[in-house]
């Protein structure tokens, strides 16, 4: 049934480089398509043949467990061949530039390149040089579109909609690609977005992206339907953005006391990996009734299946691509 349906849907973009620029219809299409894979992934036989004969390369220049595994599983469940390349084994270590690596891989005729890179704009640069579809699996502090999609799918399944919800994104906004993708997606879909963080972790001019900024958790969480916590990206911090972990947790770590000002049924989300006792209290993270953190991971595979499928089937004929 899913196989049959795939011929009829059309995704209007060749690559998935970010959420910014996608229309509500684009996002709805991706989410609806993802939805259909959620059930399939819960069956004993999870494998389909939509992408049989296709090649997907995961090109990861940053450490990643969940995103890389998620893309790998998504590709394999659709029947494609998946190659994983990570920095530690690639020629980048031998001094090759991103573009040379991309051209080398391009010559092997992949259908999709999934790229994670520490620099903003890397996916865009790659997309200009290769013939296949490019999926941005996180470029620096810019975007991480599949994360925002899986967050949206999680919310939509729990709340039945995105429109009109009040979503708080808390923590290290300035370094977060997840926050940027989520801001674009939630705004596009009619949700309201609040950012809560110390001033040092709020990027300049972010209000212009259509968000409300708070510096106090209790104030910011008031009446929120969704609480998204972000990891402190210490590895991206040059200089000091806050004095200590204990002070950060004291004022901005999510615990039951601060959570009390959100709606009683507010959903707690985290893109992972979590740092317990830094941005989130263990008790809250493990609260099965309220935390959707594990569900987010499950949705991740479905969302990536939909993205791989729609982008692959959307490509020009093979002969044209390879000229």
């Amino acid at each position: 049934m899913i196989d049959g349906a795939s011929d009829t849907v059309q995704f209007a973009h060749r690559h998935l480089l970010g959420i910014e620029g996608l229309s509500p219809d684009d996002i709805t299409l991706l989410l609806d398509r993802s939805e259909s894979y959620v059930e399939q992934n819960r069956q004993i036989d999870k494998k389909k043949s939509v992408l049989r004969g296709r090649t997907i390369i995961n090109l990861f220049f940053e450490a990643s467990t969940r995103t890389r595994t998620s893309f790998e599983l998504a590709g394999k469940r659709l029947g494609s061949d998946v190659i994983n390349m990570s920095v530690s084994t690639s020629s980048i270590k031998k001094g090759e530039t991103l573009i040379d690596t991309a051209m080398t891989l391009n010559a092997m005729h992949p259908d999709v390149l999934v790229l994670r890179h520490p620099d903003a704009g890397a996916a865009k640069l790659l997309s200009e040089k290769v013939n296949c579809a490019v999926i941005n699996a996180g470029d620096g502090s810019h975007e991480h579109p599949t994360q925002a999609l899986l967050d949206a799918l999680t919310i939509r399944r729990r709340r039945g909609r995105l429109q009109g919800l009040m979503v708080a994104i808390c923590g290290d906004i300035v370094h977060s690609r997840v926050a940027r993708s989520n801001i674009h997606l939630l705004n596009t879909m009619g949700a309201r977005v609040r950012l809560i963080a110390p001033r040092t972790l709020i990027p300049e001019g972010v209000e212009r992206l259509g968000v409300e900024v708070f510096h106090d958790m209790k104030e910011g969480l008031e009446d929120c339907d969704i609480v998204m916590m972000l990891r402190l990206q210490i590895e991206r911090m040059h200089g000091n953005f806050f004095p200590s972990i204990r002070e950060y947790f004291h004022f901005f770590g999510l615990d039951y006391e601060k959570l009390a000002s959100a709606k009683p049924d507010a959903l707690i989300m985290h893109p992972g990996p979590m740092n317990r006792g830094v941005e989130i209290d263990s008790e809250v993270a493990d609260d099965f009734g309220r935390s959707a953190i594990r569900e987010q991971v499950e949705m991740g595979v479905a969302v990536r299946m939909a993205c791989l499928e729609l982008l692959t089937l959307n490509q020009p004929e093979a002969e044209q691509r390879n000229l």
Binding site: P198, R199, T200, H215, G239, N240, P243
Partner: peptide, 11 residues
């Protein structure tokens, strides 16, 4: 450092 201090204190 002063920029961050002013910003952080402003929180």
């Amino acid at each position: 450092v002063m920029r961050r201090a002013l910003s952080y204190a402003g929180t």
